[in-house]
C-alpha cells in the first residue's frame, strides 16, 4: 500500500512534469513559426517582370515604380527569380537564391540596378519601431545606378553621402517638407524637388532608382503606418474643484462625530448604571 501510494505520487509528478514541458513547448512554438511582412519594390527602369518565389509565380507583370505587398512569409531562405512577363522561369533575367528572411521582421526587397548598372536584389529591414508623438520617420534608400547623393529638406541636408544599396533614416517633425537629392557635396540637383507629406506616426520610405547616365532617375515611395505612440498623459485639471477624494475637513467631521457619539454613549451608560 505504502509502495503503491508513493508510486502513484511519482506517476503524478512525472505527468505534471510532462504537462509542464508540453505547455512550455507549445508556448515556445511561435518563435520557430515566426512570419515576416515582405514588400517588393521594382526599381529597374523599363523592365516589367513576373516575380517567382521558390519557383511559384507570385507577381504578374510587376512594373517599374510599383510596390507590392506586404506579403506574410514564413521565416527562411527564398529563391527569387524575375522573368520578362509571360516567359518561363528557366529564362529568368535575374535569379537570386537563398535570400534570407528573418522571422518577425518587416522587410522590403528591391529589384534594382547597382552603381554600375547591373540588376540586383537588395533586402532592407524596415525600422518599424514606434516614433514619438508628433514625429514621422523618413527613410531614404539609394537603389539607382548613380553616384553618392545628399538628400535635402527645404534646402538643408538631412542625409549625406548616401550610396547604392544603402539607406539613411531620421525621425523628424511630422508635416510637409520640400525634398530633393543632389550629387553628394554639391548643389547639383539630381532628383526633385518634390513636396513630401510626412504623416505623424508613419514611416515614409523613398527610393531613388533608375540610371543617372540614361537620365531615368526617379523615386518610388512606400509608407508604413501604425508606428504612432500616445501622448505621455492628459493633464487637464489643476484646481481641485472636482476633487472626489475625502478632504481633511471630512475626516475631522467624521472623527469628531464618532468621538461625540462614543463619549456621550459611555456617559449615558455609566450615569444609568450609577443611578440604578
Amino acid at each position: 500500500m505504502q509502495l503503491s501510494y508513493s508510486r502513484r505520487v511519482a506517476t503524478g509528478g512525472v505527468l505534471a512534469a510532462l504537462t509542464f514541458a508540453g505547455v512550455a513547448a507549445l508556448t515556445a512554438t511561435p518563435a520557430y513559426a515566426a512570419t515576416s511582412e515582405v514588400s517588393a519594390i521594382h526599381g529597374i527602369p523599363g523592365t516589367p517582370v513576373d516575380v517567382y518565389l521558390n519557383g511559384a509565380k507570385t507577381l504578374d507583370n510587376f512594373a517599374p515604380g510599383e510596390v507590392a505587398g506586404p506579403l506574410s512569409l514564413a521565416a527562411g531562405a527564398y529563391d527569387i527569380a524575375l522573368t520578362k512577363p509571360g516567359e518561363p522561369v528557366a529564362d529568368a533575367i535575374l535569379t537570386v537564391d537563398d535570400v534570407e528572411v528573418l522571422g518577425g521582421t518587416n522587410v522590403s526587397m528591391a529589384a534594382h540596378l547597382d552603381a554600375s548598372g547591373q540588376p540586383k536584389i537588395t533586402s532592407f529591414v524596415n525600422d518599424t519601431s514606434k516614433v514619438d508623438a508628433g514625429k514621422s520617420r523618413l527613410i531614404a534608400r539609394h537603389i539607382a545606378a548613380a553616384p553618392a547623393m545628399d538628400v535635402r529638406a527645404g534646402g538643408t541636408s538631412v542625409f549625406t553621402n548616401l550610396t547604392n544599396s544603402n539607406e539613411a533614416k531620421a525621425d523628424m517633425e511630422a508635416g510637409t517638407i520640400k525634398a530633393d537629392a543632389v550629387l553628394a557635396g554639391t548643389e547639383t540637383v539630381t532628383i526633385g524637388p518634390a513636396d513630401l507629406e510626412l504623416s505623424e506616426g508613419t514611416a515614409t520610405i523613398v527610393y531613388a532608382f533608375g540610371s543617372a547616365d540614361a537620365g531615368t532617375l526617379e523615386v518610388v515611395a512606400q509608407t508604413i503606418t501604425g508606428l504612432h505612440s500616445t501622448p505621455a498623459g492628459v493633464p487637464s485639471g489643476s484646481g481641485g474643484l472636482a476633487d472626489t477624494g475625502a478632504s481633511t475637513w471630512w475626516y475631522l467631521l467624521a472623527g469628531a462625530g464618532a468621538l461625540l457619539l462614543v463619549g456621550g454613549g459611555t456617559r449615558v451608560a455609566t450615569t444609568r448604571r450609577s443611578n440604578r
Binding site: G65, A68, T204, Y207, A221, Q222
Partner: peptide
Amino acid sequence: VPVRKGELPA
C-alpha cells in the same frame, strides 16, 4: 498580393 504605384504620399 496588393500592388500599387509607389507615388509620394499625398
